[in-house]
């Protein structure tokens, strides 16, 4: 699953169309399909953090997906003193202007360039040198890292204003156009993140869900079951069906014991 956070509907619109997302009634402006969930957070870092937290909570209750394997992308427009209008960048050093706090998102293997990104509480009169300026990234990244590995929490910004094209000229129409012109880059970023998130996906397998429907497992037993099924996958391949001897297990405890014995025997032959 990929969580997309952006500040305004104008920025969201080209992505909603490209991914064919459907609007879902919610406290936030929320669009989704099976893999992608997009929240229009509103402007500002607190809104971005709130949207991120809300979506993570929603994902944990309404999907079988492990929250830690959710990848996150905050996309939108940003200012930059020198960069060309319409150029796009991942953020590789994100600084919160108010607190001075800094994050260094790991650069994911992507063809897009990356640069420094400064999150401000309100637009500055003059740009600070050599960095993008936005109003959401620091809140987004701080919140996103509470739920997922840092590598899976990224920002991608399209330059909307610079020293020769001031912020006062930026409007919803321009924001939408700039995002639309960069849709390939944004989709590429999304695909890269999705591939990465698959590496760490620890979502329960279908067989695990089936087993837990038939026997009642305590929290600690469920953890043991998960690890034993992982060991089964490593040593014997994915458990496809519940084997006959295990079908007869009278309790979750007996089930676990029998499954662990099977795996231990396979392990002893290494």
């Amino acid at each position: 699953m990929l969580g997309l956070i952006t500040a305004t509907l104008a920025e969201a619109d080209p992505v909603i169309h490209a991914l064919k997302l459907k609007k879902i009634p919610a406290p936030f402006s929320y669009y989704k399909n099976e893999e992608h969930h997009l929240v229009v957070s509103g402007i500002g870092k607190c809104n971005a953090a709130a949207a991120c937290g809300w979506l993570a909570q929603k994902a944990s209750y309404t999907t079988s997906i492990s929250t830690t394997s959710v990848a996150w992308l905050n996309f939108g427009i940003a200012g930059h003193p020198e960069a060309e209008l319409g150029s796009s960048f991942f953020g590789h050093k994100i600084t919160d202007n108010a607190s001075g706090k800094v994050w260094y998102p790991h650069r994911i293997n992507s063809d897009l360039p990356s640069t420094n990104l400064l999150t401000v509480d309100k637009p500055l009169d003059t740009y600070k040198p050599d960095q993008l300026h936005d109003m959401e990234a620091s809140g987004f990244i701080e919140a996103g890292r509470k739920f997922s590995d840092a590598e899976l929490v990224q920002t991608l910004k399209v330059v909307s204003d610079n020293s020769t094209h001031p912020l006062s000229e930026v409007n919803a129409k321009l924001a939408k156009t700039l995002i639309a012109e960069n849709i390939e880059s944004i989709l590429h970023g999304i695909d890269t993140l999705k591939l990465l998130s698959k590496v760490v996906d620890s979502t329960d397998s279908a067989i695990s869900v089936e087993i837990q429907k038939r026997w009642h497992f305590s929290v600690s037993q469920a953890i043991q079951l998960k690890r034993t099924l992982q060991r089964h996958r490593a040593l014997l391949g994915e458990l496809q069906d519940i084997p006959d001897p295990l079908q007869q297990a009278a309790s979750s405890k007996e089930f676990l014991t029998l499954l662990q014995q099977t795996v231990d025997i396979a392990g002893s032959k290494l």
Binding site: N109, R145, D149, A150, L152, L196, V199, V200
Partner: peptide
């Protein structure tokens, strides 16, 4: 040393 890093994901790049 920052929190929440994933060694396996970083090892890719």
């Amino acid at each position: 040393n920052s929190n929440s890093q994933n060694f396996r994901l970083q090892k890719k790049n």
